[in-house]
Structure formats: structure tokens, C-alpha cells
Amino acid sequence: MTEEIQKKLQKELEIFNGVQKEYHKAVAQKQQLDSQLNENKAVKEELALLKKDSEVYKLIGPVLVKQDLEEARQNVSKRMEYISKEIKRTDDHISALENKQEALQENLNKLRNDLGKLKIKA
């Protein structure tokens, strides 16, 4: 009986660690997306400040390519939209993982308790 629970505990622990790893990855991803969104926000503000006939370039590889200002503005807005969607997706993912983690933690605690009780009995 003790061995059985111990085995189960080990298995659960492995699953828990996996979920935890995934969770950390998701959080790191969200942070990256956040900073990207912030950078795009700053660029959008800057583009909005430019005069109509200002020249705008985009760095493609090592060269600067001239861009249409209006097009650049639209591009940045589109990208911000996309990043916002990604952030929302990651947020959902993170909360789902949080719930999973909690459930697993509870399960682990229960198994540990059972094991402790059995050990006292033995």
C-alpha cells in the first residue's frame, strides 16, 4: 500500500513539475509580449507626432527602406492588435495553468498526507 502511494506521488509530482515549467514559460512569454506592445505603443505615438511629409524608413536586414507614413501607421496599429490578441491568449493559458497547478497541488498534499498516515501506522 505504501509503495503504491509512493509511486503515485512520484508520478503526480512529475506532472506537477511539468505544469510548473509550462507556467513559467507562459509567464515569460507574456512579459515579452508586454514589452513588445509597449515598444509598439511608443512607436505609434512617435509616428502620430510626425508631420505629413516626414520621411519614414523601415530597417530590413541592414538597409533602410523608405516607407509610406500612412502605411507605417497602419502597420503598427495592426501589429498592436495582433500582440494584444496574443497577450489575451497567453493570459487565458496562464490562468488555466494556474488552476491546473492548484488542483495538482491539492492532490499532492492529499497523497503526502495518506503516506504520512500510513507511515505512522506502520
Binding site: 509598439n40 519614414v56 524608413y57 523601415k58 503598427v76 501589429r79
Partner: peptide, 21 residues
């Protein structure tokens, strides 16, 4: 001057605009 305003975009500004930026 041409200024890197982030995410690979560069904008041309006059000197005053650059200082302000």
C-alpha cells in the same frame, strides 16, 4: 537627422525635432 523610433522604424526629423525627441 534620422532617428530609430523602435521596432525597426526610423523617422526623419529636423534638428529641433531630434532634440525634442
Amino acid at each position: 537627422v534620422i532617428i530609430d523610433i523602435g521596432t525597426g522604424y526610423y523617422a526623419q526629423k529636423d534638428i529641433e525635432g531630434g532634440k525634442d525627441y
